[in-house]
Simulated assay, not measured.
Amino acid sequence: MLVGVPKEIKNKEFRVGMTPTSVREVVDAGHKVMVETGCGVGIGMDDTSYRKAGAKVVKTAAEIFAKADMIVKVKEPQASERKMLREGQILFTYLHLAPDPAQTKDLVKSKATCIAYETVTSPTGGLPLLAPMSEVAGRLSIQAGAYYLEKAHGGHGLLLGGVPGVDPAKVVIIGGGMVGRHAAHIALGMGADVWVIDRNVDVLRSLWAQFDRPLNTVYSTKDAIERHCAEADLVVSGVLIPGAAAPKLITRDILKTMKAGSVIVDVAIDQGGSAETSKATTHDNPVYVVDDVIHYCVANMPGGVPKTSTYALNNATLPFILQIANRGWRKALTENKHLMAGLNVHAGHVTYKAVADDLGYKFTAPEEAVRI
C-alpha cells in the first residue's frame, strides 16, 4: 500500500500524521510512504529524516492525494484538501464531523473511506486514539486558564495556586474523563482549589482514589453546574459524547452569573463546545469575551505543543496504520470491531450513528457499508 502524509494546513497546526520512526515501521512492513516536503518541520524533523526512514519526499500535497491509497493526517481535511479526495481512497485522521456539516457533505461526496481517530474504540471501552490528545489538551487547559487569569491578559488578576494567607483560584472541571483527569492533575499540582463535576459516580470514585481529599468531586446536576460555575475563577469543560455534538451545559444564563474576568477553557470545542457562547478559535486569536467572561476555544490545542503531541499520537495510531496497510481497509475493519467503530463515512454513506443523527443523514451501519 502507498501511504501518503501531507503537511497540515490548519491554522498554527504543527503536528504531522507520521513521524520518521512510524514511516520506518511501515516501510519495513513492505509498504511505500510518500510525504510532503516540510511536513515534519514543526516537530524538528527535516526531509532528510524522512528519506532516511524510507519515505519519498514530494513537493505538493496534490501529488500525495493523487497517488496515495491511504492519507494519514492529524486534523480534519480542510476544504482544499477535501476537493482532492477520491472514491476508494482511505482517509485516517481526526474528523469531528457532528458540528461540521460542510466537511461531512464533502466527505460523503468524495466517496472516500473515512476513518476517524476519535471514534476508534478499545477492548476496555476507551477511545485509544483520542486519549493521548485529551491528555495533552487537559494539561494545556490549566496552563491556558492560568495565563488568561492574569490581569495583563484580561483576567481578574488571580494566581491559580494563591500564596500563604491568600485563597487559591477555584477551578471547576466539567467532565471527569481523560481531559478532566489530566486537568485536575495539573491544577492540583499548581495548588488550586479543584472541583470535578461528573454524572458517573464510578468516575468520581476513581478520581477520589487517585487524588484523595485535595480533589473535590460533585455529582453533575443543573444545580451543581450553575452553583459551581458562578463561584469559579476557571472552568474547564471536557465533556464528551463519542462522535456526537457536545451538550450545551454552560448556558447563557449561567454565563451571566460568572465572575467578571473569569475564564472558560472549552476543550469540547472540536465537537461544538459545551458552552452556548463557545465558538472555535485559533492559536493566532485564541480568546474572546462574552459577558466579561474570557472564552478560550482553540480547536487544535495540542497543536501548540507539536513534539509532545505528535509522538503521543503516533504511539497510538501506528498499530492501526499497520493493520490497514497490511490487511487492506475492508479486512482490517471486518476483523477488528474497534477499528470498525472508527468508520464515519464510506462510499457516500454516513456510517456513524451520532453523526447521522446530529446532521440529518440516513445512517448506514458500518458492517453493512463495508460490503458496498
Rank of each mutant, 00 (worst) to 15 (best):
D284F: 11
S278W: 05
M258F: 02
P20G: 04
V27S: 06
G348M: 04
S141C: 08
A275D: 01
N285C: 12
T48I: 14
L322E: 12
S237D: 06
A209L: 09
A325L: 04
V370M: 15
L91T: 14
L249Q: 02
R15E: 07
G44L: 04
A260Y: 01
D253F: 08
G155I: 06
G348V: 09
E81G: 12
A102V: 15
Y148H: 13
S141D: 09
G272V: 06
E276P: 02
A62N: 14
T334G: 01
L249F: 04
T257Y: 02
L129R: 07
H182V: 01
M133T: 00
R213H: 10
Q323S: 15
L313T: 04
K362C: 08
K67C: 03
E276I: 03
P77C: 05
H283K: 07
K307N: 13
K67M: 10
I186V: 15
G40A: 06
M45W: 12
P20W: 02
T19W: 07
H349C: 12
G145H: 03
L188Q: 03
A232E: 04
H156K: 09
H295F: 11
I225Q: 06
M45N: 13
E63H: 05
V136L: 05
V265T: 07
S278K: 00
G273E: 09
T221W: 00
H295D: 10
G162H: 02
K105L: 13
T282K: 11
V355Q: 06
